[in-house]
């Protein structure tokens, strides 16, 4: 595994190499070289099994992290190729020509995160959602709770009490206490 990474590092500039386990390594590469590296791993290093294409929303950095999981079935180790792309107008080079299932992943990411993969077959088709007019729902700023409160209605007559505030109300309503308990009950 170490040799392989050294070989790769001469060709590509890799950063943030982290061993999660002996046979599972995460690394980061610039966006432009990502598909190049993935293709190289598949064609020359025997990473023939594509495990997963995933996305992590680092909203505070304004980035999406695209994560390509590659598995080397002969030698039984995994390389996870990460790349950061801008959150605004998110776009990534399509990899659908490398493995068939990537088409599905890219369709899903297009729908759930709003990342475009130009040229990927059927990338704009609905995958799971139909008639969705909100922002892509897997983005961090999409608030599921608020959405469900706006869309559905709560069961009537439900009311809960915070023990500390309720005890203040009952036992020592006028006495000074800390600000949080002093807040009126919801």
């Amino acid at each position: 595994m170490k040799d392989l990474l050294e070989r790769l590092n001469t060709k590509y500039s890799l950063t943030d190499i982290e061993y999660q386990r002996d046979n599972l390594v995460f690394l980061t590469i610039r966006k432009e070289n990502t598909i190049d590296l993935v293709t190289h791993l598949r064609d020359y290093e025997g990473f023939t099994h594509f495990v997963l294409l995933s996305c992590v929303d680092w909203i505070e950095d304004g980035k999406f992290q695209l994560t390509y999981f590659l598995n080397q079935p002969e030698r039984k180790y995994d390389i996870v190729v990460r790349t950061m792309i801008d959150r605004d107008n998110a776009e990534m080079v399509s990899a659908h020509h490398l493995w068939r299932q990537i088409t599905t992943y890219q369709r899903e990411l297009r729908e759930m995160y709003g990342i475009n993969f130009p040229g990927s077959p059927g990338v704009d088709e609905n995958f799971i959602l139909e008639g969705w007019d909100e922002i892509p729902p897997m983005r961090r700023e999409f608030d599921t709770k608020k959405y469900s409160e706006d869309t559905f209605f709560p069961r009537e007559g439900r009311k809960t009490h915070d023990p500390a505030s309720y005890m203040k109300e009952k036992l020592y309503p006028t006495e000074p206490t800390t600000a949080k308990v002093n807040k009126t009950d919801e």
């Binding site: 495990v51 996305c55 299932q101």
Partner: peptide, 17 residues
């Protein structure tokens, strides 16, 4: 968690395959 992603075999088997 920041993100969890399940890799189910059917994702490939029932779609592209």
């Amino acid at each position: 968690p920041r993100r969890i992603n399940l890799r189910g075999p059917s994702y490939n088997h029932a779609m592209s395959l």
